[in-house]
Nucleic acid binder design. Sequence first.
DNA 1: TTGTAGGCGTTATCAC
DNA 2: GTGATAACGCCTACAA
Lengths: 326, 326
Amino acid sequence: MATLKDIAKHANVSTCTVSRYLNSNIVVKKETEVRIEEAIKKLGYVPNIIAKSLKQQETSNVAVILPKLNHLYYSEVTSGISQTLAEHHYNIFIYEVDNLHLDEEGIMNLMRENMVAGIVFIGLFPDTSFQEKIKEVFLGWKIPVVYTNRCIPYDGFPLLYPNLVKASKIGTEHLIKRKKEKIAFMHKPLPKDLLNQFLKGYREAINRDHEPLFIEISDDKNVNKEYVQKLIEHQINGVFVLDEKSAVYLTKTLAKSNIQVPYDIAVLSLGNSLISEISTPELTCVDLQNRVLGQKSAEIILNQILNKTFEDVTVLEPFIVEREST
Amino acid sequence: MATLKDIAKHANVSTCTVSRYLNSNIVVKKETEVRIEEAIKKLGYVPNIIAKSLKQQETSNVAVILPKLNHLYYSEVTSGISQTLAEHHYNIFIYEVDNLHLDEEGIMNLMRENMVAGIVFIGLFPDTSFQEKIKEVFLGWKIPVVYTNRCIPYDGFPLLYPNLVKASKIGTEHLIKRKKEKIAFMHKPLPKDLLNQFLKGYREAINRDHEPLFIEISDDKNVNKEYVQKLIEHQINGVFVLDEKSAVYLTKTLAKSNIQVPYDIAVLSLGNSLISEISTPELTCVDLQNRVLGQKSAEIILNQILNKTFEDVTVLEPFIVEREST
DNA sequence: TTGTAGGCGTTATCAC
DNA sequence: GTGATAACGCCTACAA
């Protein structure tokens, strides 16, 4: 494989002339340029980024760390990241933590070993011990970090997440607008602080004399008649479901119970992926702007790398996508 | 950041002792080991893979090149790749070609620049001009390559795909077993060679006096009543749909037309993602083993890297997953 | 068992 | 405008 040296020799100039020409650091004589270009073409020269990275002590690789890729949420966010990074000629490493068999320390060492230019954590590591590790990386080793989609208080490194309080609020308001005033919340097991945010938005929207009904779906189950029974008992006519898959299974179960969606009970889900779109009936939902989330995450990483300013906390505004289920 | 040199100095040994100790090339005196370990811990040493890669002229980064990540098919295959590669401590680069704004030459140069250890192409580049480029990379520059999920004749580089003829055959057979003998094929626009494979499997399964009905769905449309009308005209009672999303929209449209699935018309889709699972009714489908496809793709790359033997062509066997739509 | 030194392909600091 | 030379951090012959 041809190297810079080979090009230099072939073009009768020094390596540094070639290097500077390629990086547009200097203007070279037209004649020199021609000879260099010719040599590059003839020898099929391609620069070696590894050598460059070693010399410059920085790579153009950004790591994305997430639980799993084969999920519409994560792949959408990641695709957004990938899009923005590609525009700036950065490469993207994917790490699925479940596959890594590494503890937090191991993951961080992996990042350092590979000299990644930045790290995007997506919705991960609820425990605070890891936050300390991330802070260490961010503050100590000065690796740009973004924490995407964990709604935690600001703690020294940039955060980026959707406004969950508002998501919950506009979702609830939408149901109320559809004359569904007895509204239940359905959700898979969830950290308490998250749940509190949803509760807050819900409270802001709801009539104060309406007793909220929170229904937690076991992690090992889908929504079934048992859950629908609860809805009936409480004379619920609107349900806000915190994940799309559960929302789908809810509508399925309602249909089997001869309960009409949205006439008897309206269903609104959080998250607007293909799932909501293809469900029967198609689900009205709160769009959390997943792709934008990814794009902005990448932007914040890039701004850090390029020493530009960036927001400590970026909050995305959710919006309603109306379909058939409300 | 501490380097090997620092460790060596701190432990009062030479860099090469440390290096060889770390790479388990030699056994060192217990005492030396202790001193080295102590230095590593004290200085927080992490090896620099970039420098290592430069020296060894090889990286442990494998590139996955695909059209888009935010799709259940691609993300599932990629997750499989990621899983197997992670087990062998390889990193994975993701390149979404739509975002790259690079022609084939540009993509290949990117691979060389980054000195990737291998490349997995997933379902891409139907035109043969690019096949030539890939062959050049594979044979000329000796970068391990796998071509995943393009059912083309063997042409010098390893191929890996599901048995589409069989997929089509067992799908058709399943419909026949359910007493649905007037079977239509529905599909989005498709390269002719692919279509021929499906046709072949179909022919092997079907009664010879049954005239096949192929329905192509416009790229800009979902299945609608117009298509259902065709089914009725031809007295179809079973449909084999070549993509899950279309299958879902077909069942939706059938429901709206008061046609019962599976009683009046059975529907069977190709591909077993979450989409088939959550559709109403849940779709019987042909599982193409997407995750396994990814895993095996990674294995073939690894075998090439490690100079082990590997199959030129690997064909995966599809199987039926029975749900409610047949 | 351990040390010395050269080089992987680049860029950067000088000097000319 | 251009060139020589020294790094970047690691591995590895070869030497001791």
